[in-house]
Amino acid sequence: MNTEELQDLARNIRKSIINMLAEAGTGHTAGSLDIVEIMVSLYFHALKHDPENPDWPDRDRLVLSAGHINPALYATMSEAGYFPKEELLTLRKINSRLQGHPHNHSLPGIEASSGPLGQGSSVAVGMALADKMDNKPNHTYCIVSDGEHDEGQIWEAIMFAAKNKLNNLTFIVDRNHIQIDGTTEEIMPLEPFAKKYEAFNWHIIEVDGHNFTEIISALDKKSTEKPTVILAKTIAGKGIPAIENNWQWHGKTPTKDEAIEAIKQLEAR
């Protein structure tokens, strides 16, 4: 896929996210919008997967540790062919397969139930370790949010992965600088963020989280020695000027009117 096609996909996914969240009336908008290029790069470039056969034993794995931004995951999976797009509007509703946070037993293709922050990171580490033990060539990816690094568990997982030289593991950090109650540097400063990973003996790649060329090149040049972290600088709420860079959009959703306006802006871009 060329960059233009990827960008078209990203635009469609953002439209789906807006529609899903406006319909659901609850959920997390800013992070869902800013992770789109990364989701597209994973599902349409990096991941070895088969939407027709989600349990394919030789697939790569993706754990969305930041489970609250799963509208982006669902919308991308739907574009990839895991389930019909109409189902997206059932997000967060009763009897839906699209649970408020990902659940592996409700939707084929979801690797692990996640959402309570920090937990997905350890689960991803465990999956990568299992592949190592079995000499399988697969790769495990884990999307973690920046605010999620307030949790001690993440650093436990990071230490463990470095100790075990899990070169088949990549964390992608959504560095959007916001969390639910404010900016990350206000709530619990993370900087110098990259240096922290460096001190924990990971391979670090910093990218613009909205630049397909940079993301894809980072996904293609992971370390062969140690676990890799891709620190993706993102703009919270990317794509909708009224939502961008405002922490108050972390945990709220657009009204139906705001959604119509947002879709117009996405189409105009």
Partner: peptide, 25 residues
């Protein structure tokens, strides 16, 4: 090879075990 040392980190240990189990261990 069947012994996995996690250090004093019970939360991570539980998560890693979940990942291992979801991959067949």
């Amino acid at each position: 090879d069947q012994y996995i040392e996690c250090g004093v980190a019970e939360q991570n240990m539980a998560g890693i075990a979940a990942g291992l189990a979801l991959s067949g261990k």
